[in-house]
Design a protein around this nucleic acid. Structure first.
Lengths: 244, 244
DNA sequence: TTCATTATCCATAAATCCATAGATAACACG
DNA sequence: CGTGTTATCTATGGATTTATGGATAATGAA
């Protein structure tokens, strides 16, 4: 029958896919999207986080908005961008998976940092949740404060990597410390663990990062409140923990 | 400490991700990769399937090979390409998911064909496996023969869409027919179902397609043998069906 | 060896992408 | 209303990407 039309349609379809693909051809655009998967951020915040000129960052964000990967919200004279949905974060995460598995260069970069904190020692999400509930662990979010405020693991305290050594005394020396960051490709948490161990602390990384925690629908807190262990508690009492 | 170095490393990391991203910026490259997720194909086979000149197709394949997304094998004077791993197929599938969810244009194209075969009527993988085993369903693979031969659902017969009407009498009129193709973005199976219903047959699509079946580690047969129901049978008797 | 088939490499011209500076626009606050 | 802040739009030149034809290379068959 109309094989001609079908052929046309298939070409159109792949052109649409390429619209999405276009977003991840530029390193800075991937970086921006990765940041947005951590939570909402304003344009100039994103620009300074990535080292881009404001107009360049804005242009990249437009590209992503045009293919509906991100959405915006205006508050006063600031425009906040966010990922348009969890499938977008999954897409970025999958891209990372492929790079990690396929590219020796990526393995190398990750090994440079993570050599002393090997992967078998990471804490699973379920374990972490249970131990937060039991109160026998300190969870630190080592990402920049902005990302912590845009959503963090309930019960975690904000302790950006750059301040870690200076604020070491805030951490109970008797407790084990679990650090987390943006995900499997992020170097912050592994670096934090290296630093902590250098100071004789018992420390481990969470398996992957915040986006995965969010996708597992585990409890997330917004803003700067740090005393929210009870939220995790309430969550646990109404949900079977086997689900995660 | 060495924040400078960390910044550098992060930039390098995103550049590596962009190497992968580069593959999916070109519609034809996505089409090629999608085909390779169906199974191994030779270069000129791929070229004619996508309507590309041989040299162009080869160039695209080089790009994908350089970032390890595909691998090759030589047999006589033909070079066969294949996806380098299942995470690559997952990446393409995720790209499709995002496009399907986010882009109205994609929804439109899919609706044009699939309007009469709505998604709630699709057969799940588990159901299909059980019914193949019970022998009360005919499974047709409506993709081109090359893809059928590069791996098909055990028990399925090859009946490319273009020959469907001509070979209708090969299908038992009493049996329900389940058609499958490349996946959620492929139009072949929905079109086949439309055609079959027009001829008064009871027909449905499988939920998504071959790559997903393969990823679920369900039984796959290679080559042109069509009498392989017993393989599925053997598979079922040694595996709990609840797993899928 | 010579020829045919298949694939890769190479040069090129057209198209597209990118970062940037500067202009414009939206908004808040006096 | 004017001023300052934040973001978007526009124009530009330099870099990159793409399709293509033709040369080269690898392999099998005669």
């Amino acid at each position: 029958m109309d094989n001609e039309k079908t052929y046309e349609e298939r070409a159109l379809l792949y052109e649409q896919l390429a619209r999405i693909g276009k977003v991840v051809v530029n390193p800075k655009r991937i970086e921006l999207l990765d940041l947005l998967c951590q939570g909402e951020r304003s344009v100039d915040d994103l620009a300074s986080a990535t080292g881009l000129k404001l107009s360049t960052a804005s242009a990249h964000l437009q590209v992503m908005r045009q293919c509906r990967l991100v959405e915006t919200r205006r508050d006063a004279n600031r425009v906040y961008y966010r990922s348009a949905g969890e499938e977008v974060c999954r897409f970025v995460a999958t891209l990372g998976d492929v790079a990690r598995i396929r590219l020796a260069e990526v393995k190398q970069i990750l090994a440079d940092i993570g050599s002393h904190t090997n992967d078998t020692e990471r804490v699973s999400r379920v374990d972490l949740l249970n131990r937060v509930r039991a109160g026998d662990v300190v969870v630190i979010d080592v990402r920049p404060v902005e990302e912590y405020e845009a959503g963090h693991i309930s019960g975690a305290i904000s302790l950006p990597l750059e301040y870690l050594e200076a604020r070491l005394d805030e951490l109970d020396p008797q407790m084990e410390i679990v650090a987390y960051c943006r995900g499997p490709l992020c170097l912050l948490a592994p670096q934090a663990v290296v630093t902590l161990r250098k100071h004789g602390r018992q420390a481990r990384c969470l398996e992957d990062g915040m986006p995965e925690w969010r996708q597992a629908r585990l409890p997330v807190t917004f803003g700067s409140n740090t005393a929210d262990v009870q939220m995790a508690e309430a969550f646990l009492s109404t949900n079977k923990k086997e689900e995660f």
